[in-house]
Design a protein around this nucleic acid. Structure first.
Length: 960
RNA sequence: GGGUAUGUGGCGGAACUGGUAUACGCGUACGCCUCAGAAGCGUAUGGAGCAAUCCUUGGAGGUUCAAAUCCUCUCAUACCCACCA
């Protein structure tokens, strides 16, 4: 069979020209004759050159757009450019090019490249965020937020690179270092604009649940929002000066803390304020060590966030002469400043419970602060679990781990009788009038007949185990004190009495074996704690908690809050969105300041508030580039009057991209941000395809924007996007992530020139499922294989006849159209193409290739290889465009025979061909003719058979 | 440290609600064609074994007539969050 290679360049040009002439891809948004389908992909940043990742993003989404059109949908498949942003400005700084020129030239180049992929995007809907026609409405929306109190000005730290002498955008800081020069970044305080996304935290979280997104994405957003429920508690402050040392003087102020563990309130032994906490300033005059506090505060502010996090040791300083009153115990407890408490989370202050919080424990250890246990974890003893209906009886017990320093071994007891198989440390009850230490010594004497031991350590915590004392019909809750004791050699060991020997055997084991030898989980836990004391974070019952003693900590939690006059609150990790950027190439913030410095919205008639062009953006200035524009200052003076000043910051580009999908509906509208009459029909976006890097920021910001607009009745839906798919990543040929610095970036142009756009598209589609993220190495052989596949399809066009399609071919087509259809629908382009390949084999094997069947095949090929499909469609005499065609109907092929798998005891032993409606008897009869089946069954007779008609027959015989 | 997802040939990956594990492609081997090579075509290709047959979906158990799929434990990898009270 002659395999002539087709001329992909000619075919591509002809097809693209034809589509343009036929104007196939301009969507009539008002067309009500078809169902609307809004297919969105993340619009690109015009970085200049298209890499293979862009192909992966655009060309594969295009497959789906074409498929949906063939399904009779009115598909909106728009494109635009996220054109503001740093690279343009960096190019300007580095090479002295005008950012605008750089950006717009890049866009021109990219438009051409995107066309070359054969994408069916609607260019008439294009939006460019840096066009005044677009950012006029970004500014308008910002002002809507401002009116609603959703845009606020407050003081915040900005990142500053001391080497480049410039302010950095947040996204320019990588791991605490300047993205450009690698220098450690500092923080500076400036007054900046925030969008109060935290007001929507609850709804952003709640509305996530019903979205048909992968759990991963939802979880990532939930983690980002970071809701936690707890209580706000108030700790009144008293001052203790030399004169009032005893009672203290009520200062009439209090520290508000947020805690998720108010159940441990009785264990709060000190309070910590973030060094930046506003209250610190107020406390300074009353504190005995104001200088020390100031010094600590300054030291903290010098440190970057990064340094504070990396620091292993906790630091802090006592607030001298001031105590906080624990609202539960009414006891005064010390107040500290420490930078392990973050001012931006909760109330910027915590109640410290060293016994039950790891961070507080660390701090308390370092500062020698007392710890107070209030929760006792109580595990059921698995060897002797408590029984229902028996009363609980509390009992104090001791556990002693005795070490012989001569051998380094530890004493354990192997129990006999009713406790057979159990191994514990030396243990026993605390008798009336005994202290735990006395009890410990007494048990060593009784059970091991050893005197003269030293107690070297007592565990600061007690834990408990619940077991059943059946002889007393009680459940005992053994409240356990744990000790570490030592003895130097066993010379003094006496005879262990017989009655004790009958109960247990004393064994000496190596330190490393203790943990595995101990059987009760409670004892294991004790051993670990004795070796390394940590905070107890598990739940249990309360002690040292006044009236709440004995109750479960979880169950008593809100009662404790109520008793302490606290308030139930929710807190979020999510911070308000800082949108000010001290950058040039962005959307100007549409605000001016009056002579008093009060911000005012720029009236709508002055929008778009243009980005000035007489700007010096070379680094080295401690302010925003816009401040260097004389034009901007004059503009403000002319419009608003003398003394009025401009806002010099621009908006974060995430603001621009938070609403672009709305603008696509009416990109040129000069009277409104979009055509609102179309929103009801086109929202929410049906399917949004993008990269996983945007799961948290962009998707969350867009959802926030959308909800805010929903509340303003500017959009009709509470959510912007219905389905969302994150695509995978194309790796370089070396299996590493592509990057310019590694030099492994694939330039698709060479491959497109050699194999054609269709082959590159298909290779990318074939590489793996598009509906889940993954990493795929770029493989040249794969592109070539796709080209061969296309060549085979092309070759077939020479063999067409007018004869009707054979049954085999019709069936093959039916199977393919069903599978290719459902797989394409689910973004599983890889298996869709595989089905196309299987069908092609049938065509190649057929003695005659019916033209009609072949044309149906071309329709299925069209979304994947749009150019070749168009060419072959024309060649076979098709009218119009193949892309105007409908998806071929799946002719369900009714087969008169089915292959039934015959199993014996679940193992395949053969197969039989039967009518799908055959009875079990018929199938069994047929199956018993199979040699392998006869052989395996042998003399035995079938016990039962499982028969799934048309599928499987399983004969079950007794195991030999 | 916490959360989520994923573990299937030499590689990318298939297997719908439990019902023929390894579709499709790459790679590899052999053969045909050719003066020769390239291309093309054909055959084979999870492992062991001459074979009958046995083993195989990260590992160990379990449920079931039947498990890649469901359950329990465990190991590994990726991503997200992380001094978040």
């Amino acid at each position: 069979m002659a395999k002539e290679r087709f001329d992909h360049k000619a075919i591509e040009q002809a097809a693209q020209k034809k589509w343009e002439e036929l104007d196939l891809y301009t969507t009539d948004l008002k067309d009500d004759s078809k169902d609307p389908y809004y297919l969105l992909f993340e619009f690109p940043y015009p970085s200049g050159d298209l890499h293979i990742g862009h192909w992966y993003a655009f060309a594969l989404t295009d497959i789906f757009a074409r498929y949906q059109r063939m399904q009779g949908k009115n598909v909106l498949f728009p494109i635009g450019f996220d054109a503001f942003g740093l690279p343009a400005e960096n190019a300007a700084i580095k090479h002295g090019i005008d950012p605008k020129k750089w950006t717009y030239e890049n866009m021109d180049r990219m438009r051409e490249q995107i066309r070359s992929m054969g994408t069916s995007v609607d260019w008439t809907k294009e939006v460019v965020t840096s066009d005044p026609a677009y950012y006029k409405w970004t500014q308008w929306l910002f002002l809507k937020f401002f009116e609603q109190g959703l845009a606020e000005r407050r003081n915040a730290a900005v990142k500053w690179c001391p080497n480049d002498k410039t302010v950095l955008a947040n996204e320019q800081v990588m791991d605490g270092r300047c993205e450009r020069c690698g220098h450690e970044v500092e923080e500076k305080n400036l007054t900046q604009w925030f969008l109060t996304i935290t007001k929507y935290a609850d709804r952003l979280l709640r509305d996530l649940d019903p979205l048909p997104w992968r759990e991963e994405m939802k979880e990532a957003q939930r983690a980002w929002i970071g809701e936690s429920e707890g209580a706000k508690l108030s700790f009144p402050l008293h001052s203790y000066t030399a004169e009032s040392a005893a009672e203290g003087v009520d200062m009439n102020m209090a520290i508000e803390v947020f805690t998720t563990r108010p159940d441990t309130l009785y264990g709060a032994t000190y309070v910590v304020l973030a060094p930046e906490h506003p209250l610190v300033e107020t406390l300074l005059p009353a504190a005995l060590n104001a200088d020390e506090m100031r010094a600590y505060r300054t030291a903290t502010s010098r440190k970057t966030e990064r340094e504070r996090q990396e620091e292993k040791d906790k630091t802090g300083v006592l607030v001298g002469g001031i105590m906080a009153i624990n609202p539960a115990t009414n006891e005064p407890i010390p107040v500290y400043l420490a930078d392990y408490v973050l001012v931006s989370y909760g109330t910027g202050a915590v109640m410290a419970v060293p016994a039950h919080d790891e961070r507080d424990f660390e701090f308390a250890q370092k500062f020698g602060l007392p710890m107070k246990q209030v929760v006792v974890t109580c595990a059921d003893d698995p060897n002797n679990p408590p029984q229902e209906g028996f009363p609980d009886v509390k009992r104090d017990t001791v556990i002693v781990h005795l070490r012989d320093t001569a051998t380094g071994k530890f004493a354990l007891l192997d129990w006999h009788g009713s406790l057979d198989g159990i191994t514990t440390a030396i243990m026993g009850g605390v008798e009336e009038g005994q202290t735990p230490v006395e009890a410990a010594l007494a048990e060593i004497s009784e059970e091991a007949a050893i005197e003269g031991v030293r107690i070297v350590k007592q565990l600061p915590w007690i834990t408990a185990a619940k077991y059943c004392a059946s002889h007393k019909s009680q459940n005992r809750c053994a409240h356990t004190y744990a000790f570490l004791a030592e003895i130097d050699g066993l010379e003094s060991q006496g005879e262990i009495p017989e009655n004790e020997q009958a109960l247990h055997t004393l064994v000496w084991v190596d330190e490393s074996a203790v943990l595995s030898r101990l059987t009760p989980p409670h004892q294991k836990q004790m051993w670990q704690l004795l070796n390394e004391v940590t905070a107890l974070t598990d739940d249990g019952y309360l002690i040292n908690s006044g009236v709440f003693d004995g109750r479960s900590n979880r169950e008593a939690l809100w009662d404790i809050v109520a008793a302490a006059g606290g308030e139930r609150v929710k807190n979020y990790r999510l911070r308000d969105w800082l949108v000010s950027r001290q950058r040039y190439w962005g959307c100007p913030i549409p605000v001016v300041y009056d002579p008093e410095g009060i911000p005012h919205a720029i009236p709508a008639e002055h929008l778009p508030w243009l980005l000035p062009e007489d700007v010096d953006f070379t680094p080295g200035k401690n302010e925003s580039p816009l401040a260097s524009s004389t034009e901007l200052k004059e503009r403000v003076t002319n419009i608003f009057g003398e003394g009025w000043t401009p806002e010099y910051d621009t908006l974060d580009t995430f603001v621009d991209s938070s609403w672009y999908y709305l603008r696509y509906l009416d990109p040129a509208d000069d009277h409104d941000f979009t055509d609102q009459s179309l929103l009801k029909k086109w929202l929410p976006v049906d399917r949004y395809s993008g990269g996983s890097e945007h799961t948290t920021m962009h998707l969350l910001y867009s959802r926030f924007f959308h909800k805010a607009l929903y509340d303003l009745a500017l959009v009709p839906t509470p959510e912007p996007f219905n389905e969302r798919f994150n695509r995978g990543l194309i790796l370089g040929p070396d299996g590493a992530k592509m990057s310019k610095s590694k030099g492994n970036v694939i330039n698709p142009d060479d491959f497109v020139a050699k194999y054609g756009a269709d082959a590159v598209r298909m290779y990318l589609a074939f590489i793996g499922p598009y509906n889940e993220p993954g990493n795929y190495p770029w493989n040249l052989d794969g592109v070539e294989a796709m080209r061969k596949f296309l060549d085979r399809i092309n070759a077939l066009s020479e063999r067409l006849t007018d004869a009707p399609a054979s049954d085999t071919l019709t069936r093959a087509l039916g199977i393919a159209s069903a599978k290719v259809g459902t797989d394409t629908d689910r973004f599983k382009f890889n298996t869709a193409i595989s089905a196309l390949m299987v069908a092609l084999k049938e065509f190649e094997a057929a003695p005659e290739v019916s033209r009609e069947a072949y044309r149906a095949y071309l329709l299925m090929l069209a979304p994947f290889a749009p150019h070749l499909a168009e060419h072959l469609y024309e060649k076979t005499g098709g009218e119009g465009s193949v892309h105007e065609g409908s998806w071929p109907e799946a002719v369900v092929a009714q087969s008169d025979t089915a292959t039934i798998i015959v199993q014996v005891n679940g193992k395949k032993r053969g197969e039989i061909m039967m009518a799908p409606g055959a009875t079990e008897e018929e199938a069994l009869h047929e199956a018993m003719k199979i040699e392998a089946v006869i052989k395996v069954i042998g003399e035995q007779s079938p016990q039962r058979t499982v028969y799934v008609p048309g599928r499987i027959l399983n004969i079950v015989v007794a195991k030999a």
